[in-house]
Design a protein around this nucleic acid. Structure first.
Length: 952
DNA sequence: GCATCATCTTA
DNA sequence: GTAAGATGATGCG
């Protein structure tokens, strides 16, 4: 019996929020198949179904603001339908393990959210929903059943609507008619006639959706069809007569029960109205699931980015939303439940106590919170501290309320004045995550954190990098996840992202304090963990304290100083380039016979290969024509030269002349950022702007280097290591021929050519030298004959022969390459000259090309990595001999250091630098306890000029 | 508004 | 063939 007959719908109050009944089992399955199975926590728990179910529930609650709700689930226990029919749902395959593991989490999550969950052993979710919908109707509620199961449409009546939040389709009475062509009350018969294999309903043979619809339109019900079976045609009549038994069974299977013996207690189906309800449980489960935005919602329930968090319905006119009060509740709660002691320090008395503890400590964590990731524009907003795990302090110094008004807090200058002696005292070690940034910020307030390497007890980012550069990225959130299995509150969680992001001073204080305290706390926990790891591997500790930390402090100084630009000159170049670019564009359009965007590879490809009919176009992996220089160079057409020149000038203008002028400060100095924990080999990288890829190869490009100058009375000085990676290869391979060539100071490429070709050194042609150079570089990059052939325009056979010849002359090099490969394969890492372990993933990868790429990287890693070690050490050595008043180290470009130096002392300074750099292994490394016996001389070439072009 | 692709710059 | 970062175009939301 369906509910309709019993209903008197006049008393239903549609102004009240509807009672929402959710088919939990449907959402669980549907989301599992709809969302990628790659959604997993770092622990490998699949979360696609959990995530999808959560989103569906949130969407429903947002939409209807219900006061009452229930989610029903099937259980594993057999139901009466199983007893009725042996095939009922019998064909269904075993539930995938990836889904099964999610079920307990889905249940736990729903319960944590305070949503009534109904799962009754031996009862199907459909029947629970049917019964509750029926009861709710009788009591005058408007009901929405959320499911994608069409069977449920039998429950639709004037007060029950079925809705699918997957496709947003709603079925009221008219909707059901439109979709199925029958009344909701006929759905059971409709299903019985046509059958439903997935539900074990056999149906009547030969009857599908269309016939079922037609029959029910004509006869209204199966009972009536059977009563008039004689009217049916021969075959159909036969089938019906034979099917009466199975029809009866199918009908029972298809009928959703609406009168189960369960009495809903409406109070137990009421949703909580307080967003902080169960917050600890919510936090716990979302943390375990690594649902960052959900955690953020808990921390900051009224943030604009938080549009999906659960907010229970309340009459709008009564709502007194006080974000601060709510935020305090949530953060208090989180502190208590996690058993953490996080404090916000706003009174002088509390701060005095903190200062006392900091001053008496051996070391502590410090972290600064600011208004900007770029230290040049950042304002200090607060500082957090940790002296032990699970305890942290946040001292706000420039927070404002949502109106932008100052809030009660200690004054920034007072706080900093009291901290300064402690922060500058190297006897009290500072611990931090990416301390270079904090050092920049504090320097802006005249506090010097880079006075001595010892002042930094640890930088957790650098420690992680030294321990294993590739296991994880080295941001704090990554480290917390990887090493502490903790999902932290991210900055985006508290401040939003993109255009809507707010600055940290506007984040409500309690939320900000939690975030900042967590950072300090996590950093302390990482410090303890990494200290342990570093004790186990003393060379890593040495790399951190004797190499990376001193380098970080030097980089801080270099970034702070910045290099002077000749902005007027850059402006001239821009104008000149622009003029030429315009002219080239006109020419290109004439040559192409049409106008198009020259900067668009897509349009250019179409013009060249489709319209001008040029053949030999190569496609990129996305299927469009490649128009890279290498491809265009093989084409003979006047348009090509124009395009290439246009491209080259556009590149120079947009990437260099325009961009550099834009990032210069008010004193015309540019401050790059060096990233010290990014590359897989130990190299630095440079961003905003990247000053490690300033042009030099072409004359036009090289002009840009002329814009890097020194102030009046100073010169630009450049010092670079000559052939450092090849020297390292000679050393590692211990190759007598190469070592002798370096010892005798020969041009190494010419010497290589002479050796391979069996010629006298002076008889080597420039073409032969070029080829030898390509092979030498190829070796450093783990070359294949294919790659070499491409580089030199050789056939594969020629390339193979050439390599063979090389290895015949340099057998030790071949042995070294093979030994590196083996080491990477067997131990999973290679080591650099200072013993840095560089892990080599994918050496056993089943995909051949991935594996070969890994092998090439493994061959290159000790060479590039050792060169990186050497120049880092050189920076330290040079810094020790340099007088800050007379010269500044400004740039590092992998094998080159760039300085500005007083003109009258520049020759003397050049000698100091050259010697410090050349002696870095024989002297500096040894002083710091690395025992390196380097077989070839390190040679440094120094240039001096009025700009970087002249100096190089 | 944001992510990805193709291209080009360096050591 | 190694290691990086920036740009404009393009396509998705």
């Amino acid at each position: 019996m369906t509910a309709t007959a019993l209903l008197d719908t006049d008393h239903i109050n549609i102004d009240k929020p509807p009672f929402i009944l959710v088919d939990g089992s449907y959402y669980m399955f549907r989301n599992f198949h709809a969302l990628p199975v790659t959604m997993q926590t770092t622990q490998g728990l699949h979360t696609n179904s959990i995530r999808g179910t959560l989103n569906a529930l949130k969407k429903l609650m947002e939409k209807y603001r219900p006061t009452h709700m229930a989610v029903a689930f099937d259980t594993k226990a057999p139901t009466f339908r199983h007893k009725l029919s042996p095939i009922y749902k019998g064909d269904r395959p075993e539930m995938p393990a990836e889904l099964a593991e999610q079920i307990p989490y889905i249940h736990k999550m729903i319960q944590a959210m305070g949503i009534p969950l109904l799962a009754i052993e031996g009862v199907e979710a459909d029947d629970i929903i049917g019964t509750l919908a029926h009861r709710a109707c009788l009591e005058g509620h408007h009901v929405i059943i959320s499911t994608g199961d069409k069977d449920m449409c039998q429950l639709v009546n004037p007060c029950v609507i079925v809705e699918n939040s997957f496709d947003d389709k709603r079925y009221d009475i008219a909707g059901v008619k439109e979709k199925f062509g029958v009344e909701p009350r006929q759905i059971i018969d409709y299903l019985t006639l046509m059958g439903d294999a997935s539900d074990g309903i056999k149906g009547v043979a030969g009857i599908g959706a269309k016939t079922a619809q037609k029959l029910l339109e004509q006869y209204d019900s199966i009972d009536n069809i059977l009563a008039n079976v004689d009217q049916l045609k021969g075959k159909q009549q036969q089938t019906f007569l034979q099917s009466t038994d199975s029809i009866a069974l199918d009908k029972r299977l298809a009928t959703i029960i609406t009168d189960l013996d369960i009495v809903p207690d409406w109070e137990t189906l009421r949703l909580p109205t307080d967003p902080s309800f169960n917050i600890a449980e919510k936090r716990a489960i979302f943390t375990e699931l690594e649902f960052k935005s959900e955690i953020a919602s808990l921390n900051h329930p009224f943030h604009p980015s938080n549009n999906g968090s659960f907010k229970a319905a309340e009459p709008a006119q009564n709502a007194i939303h006080n974000p601060m009060v709510e935020a305090i509740k949530t953060s208090q709660d989180s502190k208590n439940t996690a058993n953490k002691q996080w404090h916000t320090v706003t009174s002088q008395a509390d701060f005095d106590t903190l200062i006392q503890r900091l001053g008496a400590s051996k070391h502590f964590v410090i972290d600064t919170e600011t208004t900007d990731v770029n230290w040049q524009h950042a304002e200090l907003v607060g500082l957090s501290f940790a002296l032990q795990s699970h305890e942290a302090y946040y001292v706000p110094v420039a927070h404002v309320d949502e109106m932008g008004n100052q809030i009660e807090q200690l004054a920034r200058e007072d706080v900093l004045a009291q901290l300064k002696p402690i922060l500058q005292n190297p006897q009290i070690g500072k611990i931090g995550q990416h301390l270079k940034y904090d050092a920049h910020i504090l320097a802006n307030y005249d506090i010097n954190l880079i006075n001595e390497p010892k002042n930094w007890a640890m930088d957790t980012m650098l420690a992680s990098y030294v321990i294993n550069a590739v296991a994880t990225r080295h941001g704090m959130d990554d480290l917390a996840r990887h090493y502490l299995h903790t999902q932290t509150i991210t900055f985006e969680d508290v401040a939003g992202k993109g255009a809507k992001q707010i600055t940290f001073d506007k984040v409500p204080l309690t939320v900000a304090s939690d975030y900042a305290c967590e950072d300090a706390d996590i950093t302390y926990q990482l410090f303890e963990l990494f200290s342990e790891k570093l004790r186990a591997e003393p060379n890593n500790a040495k790399l951190l304290h004797e190499l990376e930390i001193p380098v970080a402090q030097i980089l801080c100084q270099m970034e702070h100083d910045g290099i002077l630009l000749n902005k007027a000159f850059l402006g001239e170049l821009s104008a000149r380039f622009d003029e030429k670019i315009q002219a080239l564009e006109t020419v290109a359009f004439a040559q192409a016979g049409e106008t198009f965007n020259l900067a668009s590879p897509k349009q250019l490809g179409e013009v060249l290969f489709d319209r001008l009919g040029i053949t030999g176009g190569k496609k990129t992996k996305t299927g469009q024509y490649s128009t890279s220089e290498a491809v265009l160079a093989t084409i003979d057409h006047p348009l090509i030269e124009t395009v290439l020149e246009h491209r080259s000038l556009s590149k120079l203008k947009s990437t260099y002349t325009d961009a550099l002028a834009n990032v210069a400060d008010s004193n015309d100095r540019v401050h790059t950022s060096y990233h010290q924990a990014l590359t897989t080999t130990g190299r630095l990288s440079s961003t905003e702007p990247n000053l490690q890829n300033i042009p030099i190869r072409t004359d036009t490009g090289r002009l840009i280097r002329g814009a890097f100058i020194a102030p009046k009375g100073r010169k630009v000085l450049s010092a670079d290591y000559s052939q450092i990676e090849l020297r390292l290869m000679a050393h590692f391979a211990n190759d007598p021929v190469l070592i002798r060539a370096f010892q005798e100071g020969h041009d190494i490429h010419r010497a290589t050519a002479a050796e391979i070709l069996g010629k006298a050194f002076d008889d080597v042609t420039s073409e032969e030298r070029r080829q030898a150079k390509a092979v030498n570089f190829g070796l450093l990059y783990g070359m294949s004959e294919f790659g070499l052939a491409k580089q030199l325009g050789f056939t594969r056979q020629q390339a193979q022969d050439y390599i063979k010849l090389y290895f015949a002359r340099y057998p030790t090099v071949r042995a070294y390459m093979q030994a590196t490969r083996t080491a990477a394969q067997n131990q999973g890492y290679i080591t650099t000259i200072l013993g840095r372990k560089l892990f080599t993933p994918d050496m056993q990868h089943p995909n051949r090309s991935v594996r070969q790429a890994a092998e090439r990287a493994a061959i290159n890693a000790p060479l590039q990595g050792s060169a990186a070690d050497i120049i880092k050490l050189a920076m330290i050595a040079v810094n020790e001999v340099l007088h800050q008043d007379h010269a500044k180290m400004l740039l590092q470009v992998h094998d080159e250091l760039v300085f500005e130096a007083d003109e009258d002392k520049v020759d003397e300074i050049a000698k100091l630098i050259k010697n410090a750099m050349q002696d870095v292994l024989s002297k500096t490394a040894k002083e710091k306890g690395w025992d390196v016996d380097f077989a070839v001389p390190l040679v440094v070439e120094v240039g001096i000029g009025d700009n970087w072009d002249e100096a190089h």
